[in-house]
C-alpha cells in the first residue's frame, strides 16, 4: 500500500495532465486549473520542509559546536527575525522587512556575485593556456567573444563583433541545441518511467 498508493496517484495525474493537453473541454480545463492550484499549495509545504530542515541542521551544529557554528546562530537568527518582522509588520513598501531586504540582503548578495569577476579573472589567468590545439581553439574563441561583446571590439575592427556573433549563432547554438534535444528525450523517458511506475526512486527506494 505504501508504494502502490503514490504510484497510483502519479499514474492518474500523469495521464490526466498528458491527455488534457489535447482537449479544450471545459470540465477538463477546470480540473486542470484546480490541479495547478494544488501544485502551488504542495510547493508551499515543501518550503516549510526546507525551513524545518535548516533549523534541524543548524541547531545540531550549534549544540555540537561544530566548525563555524557561530554562523549557524546567525542563520537561525536571520530566519527568525525576518519571519517575525514579515508576519508582525507585513512585507509591503516601507516595512522593516523590506528595509532589511533592500539595505542588507541586496547589497550583500550583489557583493558576493560581484566577487565572481575576481575569481573568473584569476581562473582565466591560470586556466587559459596554449597547451594543445583544442586549448588554443578555446583560448582564441574566448578572446574573440570577450572583445566582441564590448564596444572595444568594434573600435578595433568590425570583424571582431561579427566573428563573435557567428561563434554564438553557429557552433555554440548547435552544441546547445544538441544538449537541449538530449535533455528533452531524457525528460520524456523519465516522465514515462515515473508515470508507469517503473522509476520509483522518488519514493525513497531503489528504482
Amino acid at each position: 500500500m505504501r508504494t502502490r498508493f503514490p504510484i497510483a496517484i502519479c499514474f492518474v495525474f500523469g495521464i490526466f495532465t498528458l491527455l488534457q493537453y489535447f482537449s479544450k473541454h471545459p470540465t477538463l480545463t477546470a480540473m486542470y486549473a484546480e490541479i495547478l492550484d494544488w501544485m502551488q499549495i504542495v510547493f508551499v509545504f515543501t518550503l516549510l520542509v526546507g525551513v524545518i530542515s535548516i533549523f534541524k541542521i543548524h541547531s545540531a551544529k550549534i549544540s555540537r559546536q561544530e566548525r563555524d557554528w557561530p554562523y549557524s546562530i546567525l542563520t537561525i537568527l536571520g530566519i527568525v527575525v525576518m519571519a517575525v518582522l514579515g508576519f508582525g509588520y507585513g512585507t509591503e513598501y516601507g516595512s522593516p522587512f523590506l528595509w532589511i531586504f533592500q539595505n542588507i540582503q541586496v547589497p550583500m548578495q550583489s557583493t558576493m556575485f560581484a566577487l565572481i569577476a575576481f575569481f573568473v579573472a584569476s581562473a582565466a589567468y591560470r586556466g587559459f593556456r596554449f597547451r594543445n590545439k583544442e586549448a588554443a581553439v578555446l583560448l582564441i574563441t574566448a578572446i574573440i567573444v570577450m572583445l566582441g561583446r564590448v564596444p572595444l571590439g568594434h573600435q578595433i575592427s568590425d570583424l571582431i563583433p561579427q566573428t563573435a556573433q557567428w561563434i554564438i549563432d553557429n557552433p555554440s547554438t548547435a552544441a546547445k541545441r544538441g544538449i537541449l534535444i538530449g535533455i528533452g528525450l531524457g525528460s520524456i523517458t523519465t516522465a514515462l518511467r515515473v508515470i508507469l511506475g517503473i522509476e520509483r526512486s522518488y519514493l525513497g527506494g531503489r528504482s
Partner: peptide
C-alpha cells in the same frame, strides 16, 4: 568599465601564456 575589465583579462591571459 566592462570594456576595460575585458581588455585587462585578455592582457593577463596573454601575459600568462
Amino acid at each position: 568599465t566592462q570594456s576595460v575589465v575585458h581588455l585587462a583579462i585578455i592582457i593577463l591571459v596573454i601575459v600568462a601564456n
